[in-house]
Design a protein around this nucleic acid. Structure first.
Lengths: 343, 343
DNA sequence: CTGTTAGCGCGTTCAT
DNA sequence: ATGAACGCGCTAACAG
């Protein structure tokens, strides 16, 4: 058998003795094509399982119908959930989705942005890597009119579109919940200090403490690298204090798991000796013997969906002359109390 | 400010009073370009943060440098891990990765394949959706010379490249481990009957039973839809038997979690009244009060890496005339026993 | 109704 | 050392 050349419009035109534009029109449902011709073309296309070459179409239309998505990683439930939402919405709008993980490496993030620029994606939805300082690589996309919508981990500037979680409100709720349960010495287990979420948690903490007229003790607010070892070390330091904290608010459920593990190892009773509240509300929390007393739900699906929605609007109005307004959306959390199940 | 046109070779040529071919050559490090010109071009490119249009290049070279990846979902640790490996290997080889989730929906899987075909990806790495019966949509890719490598959930045919887990061996190990601990009535909680893994587990089960001269009781081998409700129902039926099973091998860790939850609800002591072994070896297992006694590690990273490796070979030798040999790689599992930690 | 032509951005001859 | 011309697959403007 001779090497089969890949099906193109031109190739089909040759086989059917037509011009390539006729074939093109037939496939695209143009009115002015004879029914008979249309049928012949469609049948052949079917038989060859023809698929139009999007590269060629993109080149001509200056649109790729691809949305790039950059997230730190997909292992975290938060991001895989957000990505699901984005993928769903994009597919509904006939867009393709190009997902890449920065692995929290700024250099890798740069490369990904560069590669998406080369691919001429129609837009990028991104959550910054943990250590990203500058976002020049994202700003350079403006030369190519590629809009960017950030979510969750966003740059600290006004001239961008972003969807953020209301960390201040969530933390306030968490700490007040603990206060209402009688806790006065409450610790915070933050991520790296450079992360915006760490800073906001600390601010919210201070604010509640002031409101409740409790003396602020900054030795109760600690940063970790989010590893288990880091958490154990931080807990060692916290529990060595006098009086020791009776409650701790952790950066996320993964850290909370490590705190619970730490408690197990040191014979502390979770939610009795040490009360835990975290962020995220992972499904597995429900399978734990001693879950945190509560989690601040961050609604990853909604965050992703909102970001994707903004992106769709931006893309669809990209040629209008409306003055560009930067979208800043804030998603409120909700304190989910994990009641002990009874049967 | 006038609307800035996007940087292209042509545009830069205009600004520099050069021809586009000169600019092209300068950017690609062609020897025959004057140093001075080369510098001028590179500087302008830098200033405009020029990025070559991959669509144009793909059109010409008939290569997109994109690898498509199709997985049922990214929520499962197994798949996100495998995807990480693929992404890493691809990036090392200067390939882009296009990840999509079928959400276990065969129709959506079809659409994704179609869209990747249109994008002219250089190859597809796929794990089939739970309910996919026919893989015609994948076979149609041959018209476009797009190679496919399957992993984990693979089609049951010889004329494809695939990386599979040695389910037979893993299950044998699991059941013999249970046998050695004294269990004689061992149940299997399979996924849908159509899944190859379910069938293989059943076969391995029968084989061990025969070898150990235990009468096979097929009422101990049940299928579920993998939901919590399905698992609870299946467990109700199993535990109603006389004598009831003392051990159960579950499809994966997620099902195992539900079995443990079921046990909690019905006051069964895990690994005492009911011994559990599952597949996957999720990180969270280590945080459970009563983890399964063992898990069959399936090495998702290796599976992904192997599939990506095969794909790279296929792509690089795509124009050679070597007779095409279909790669069938089998990854062996390992029974990981979860010892109780002591401190 | 259908064919011809041109051009999207790029790399690659072939000239000069 | 540089420019002109061509073509990848496709659509759209213009012709008939």
């Amino acid at each position: 058998m001779a090497v089969q050349s890949v099906p193109t419009i031109k190739e089909m035109a040759r086989q059917l003795n037509l011009s390539s534009s006729t074939v093109s029109r037939a496939l695209n449902g143009n009115q002015s094509i004879g029914l008979r011709t249309k049928m012949r073309v469609k049948q052949l296309a079917d038989q060859l399982s023809y698929a139009p070459n999007l590269n060629a179409i993109s080149l001509k239309q200056k649109k790729t119908f691809i949305i790039g998505v950059i997230v730190p990683n997909l292992r975290e439930h938060f991001f895989s959930e957000a990505v699901c939402a984005i993928e769903d919405l994009a597919l509904q709008n006939k867009y393709h989705v190009l997902i890449n993980q920065s692995q929290d490496d700024p250099e890798r993030e740069r490369q990904i942005v560069e590669s998406m620029k080369s691919l001429r994606v129609d837009g990028i939805i991104a959550s910054l890597s943990k250590n990203t300082q500058s976002c020049d690589h994202f700003l350079a996309l403006r030369n190519y009119n590629i809009p960017v919508v950030y979510f969750d981990r966003v740059p600290n500037r006004q001239d961008v579109h972003k969807v953020v979680f209301n960390m201040h409100g969530g933390t306030k709720d968490a700490i007040e919940h603990l206060y209402n349960r009688g806790h006065r010495r409450i610790a915070i287990l933050n991520g790296p200090e450079s992360m915006a979420s760490s800073i906001e948690r600390t601010n919210a903490y201070k604010q509640v403490m002031i409101k409740k007229r409790i003396k602020i003790d900054m030795s109760l607010v600690v940063s970790t690298d989010l590893t288990q070892a880091g958490t154990f070390e931080a807990m060692d330091n916290l529990m060595a204090q006098h009086p020791r904290p009776t409650a701790v608010v952790t950066m996320n459920d993964y850290v909370a798991l490590d705190v619970i593990e730490y408690a197990k190892n040191t014979k502390l009773k979770i939610n009795k000796d040490l009360c835990v509240i975290s962020y995220a509300n992972l499904p597995i929390i429900n399978y734990l013997q001693t879950p945190p007393v509560a989690s601040v739900e961050q609604y990853p699906w909604q965050q992703g969906a909102k970001a994707a929605g903004i992106m769709m609007d931006l893309i669809k109005n990209n040629d209008s002359d409306e003055p560009l307004v930067f979208q800043h959306v804030i998603i409120d959390g909700k304190l989910m109390v994990h009641e002990k199940k009874k049967r």
